[in-house]
Amino acid sequence: MASEALQPNVGKKPKKRESQLLQTTRKLLKNKLAVFGLIVILLQMIMAVTAPWIVSYTPIEQSLSDAELGIGSEGHWLGTDNYGRDMWSRLVYGARVSLLVGVTSVVIGLAGGITLGLLAGYYKKLDGLIMRIVDLLFAFPGILLAMLIIAMLGTSLINVVIAISIWSIPGCARIVRGSVLSVKKQEYVLAMRSMGASDIRIILKHILPNCTAPIIVFATMRMATSILSTSALSFLGLGAQPPTPEWGAMIAAGQDFMWSSPHMTIVPGIAIMLVVFAFNVVGDGLRDALDPNMDFNN
């Protein structure tokens, strides 16, 4: 019965949120930096999806006799690396890898963080325990946490994803918990509770939607951090396994060739910078557009 009584309320919500969506989009599109970021992200997505059609070599095809060709060489407009692999092809396939790593680790991290945050925020009894665990994770510098996890699981891209996901959990949990705490006290939630709506229903239908804004901003910014962290792990030799065209691994490998073939490190370096920058400005723009007073750091 209680749920029927709530129908009108629920029915109203999407409409309200749609207009908010429009409003946010309009604000976002006014922000030149954010638009630039969106374009970069879009380009990366296009590269990732169309990879096989826009390159003429596979990213792992070696040709030792054509090693270290510079930018603008015939057949390899971005040159080749020390194994004669086409840099353009590696760059394009690398876009795929970095999106894949970013998205999966953020999604897993969010799943964990949201669950913990919701539980901690909604159930006072669980709050203490969960937040202590979150504090525990928080007290490790992220890169150290990732190193320990990789030491335990072994070096592979999947384990990097797991490590970075776990690293995202505490930040996300804190943000979600904070939003839950503020939403929980609002009258309509209190009303629903008194009407006997189930906890799960309240959490999923009413509390979670109200946390979406900070979560979206967090996720966008987190994409940037994930891509950077993957590259840092690759620099320490703990990232993707060769010959995977991962940008961070490409930079790390290219640093040894800084003098003979600077393009090997500059090309992927610029790619990472652009993409991370793009996610950061879009996140920043989203925050301004959604709620300028949103206050958090991950």
Partner: peptide, 18 residues
């Protein structure tokens, strides 16, 4: 400065160091 600030957190720091 806003742009540079955002670029600043976008550079892999091992790369910046080298």
């Amino acid at each position: 400065s806003t742009t540079i600030a955002l670029a600043g957190i976008s550079i892999p720091n091992f790369w910046l160091g080298t």
